[in-house]
Simulated scan of single mutants.
Amino acid sequence: MATPEFIRRLRETAGHQLLWLPGVSAIVFDAEGRVLLGKRKDTGRWSVIGGIPEPGEQPARTAVREVLEETGVHCVPERVVLVQALDPFTYPNGDTCQFMDVTLRCRAVGGEARVNDDESLDVRWFAIDALPELEEFALTRIKQALDSGPTWFDPTTGP
Rank of each mutant, 00 (worst) to 15 (best):
E54C: 03
V81S: 01
L68W: 10
L86K: 11
G111D: 00
V67G: 06
L82A: 13
E57N: 12
E66P: 02
V102H: 05
V76K: 10
R79D: 05
V64Q: 10
T96C: 12
V48A: 01
V83E: 14
R105K: 15
L37M: 06
T71H: 07
A108I: 13
E78G: 00
C97F: 12
E32I: 03
E57Q: 07
G110N: 05
A85D: 15
E32G: 11
A108V: 13
L68C: 04
R65E: 05
L82W: 12
C97E: 15
M100F: 13
P59K: 08
C75M: 11
E78V: 07
G56V: 05
L36G: 02
R45A: 09
G110S: 08
I49H: 09
Q84I: 05
G51T: 10
C106T: 05
Y91I: 05
S47I: 10
G94L: 06
V73N: 09
P53A: 05
V35T: 13
R107W: 08
R34Q: 10
C97K: 14
K41P: 06
Q84M: 11
A85M: 15
V102L: 08
R105P: 04
R107H: 07
T96Y: 07
L104E: 04
G44T: 12
A85Q: 14
C106K: 02
D87R: 15
D87C: 04
R105E: 13
T96Q: 06
H74T: 13
L82Q: 15
P59Y: 04
Q58H: 05
T62P: 02
H74G: 09
E70I: 08
D42V: 09
G94V: 06
Y91R: 12
V102Y: 03
P59T: 08
E70G: 08
T71G: 03
L36V: 10
I49P: 04
P53H: 03
V64S: 08
C97G: 10
G51V: 06
D101M: 12
K41S: 09
R34F: 01
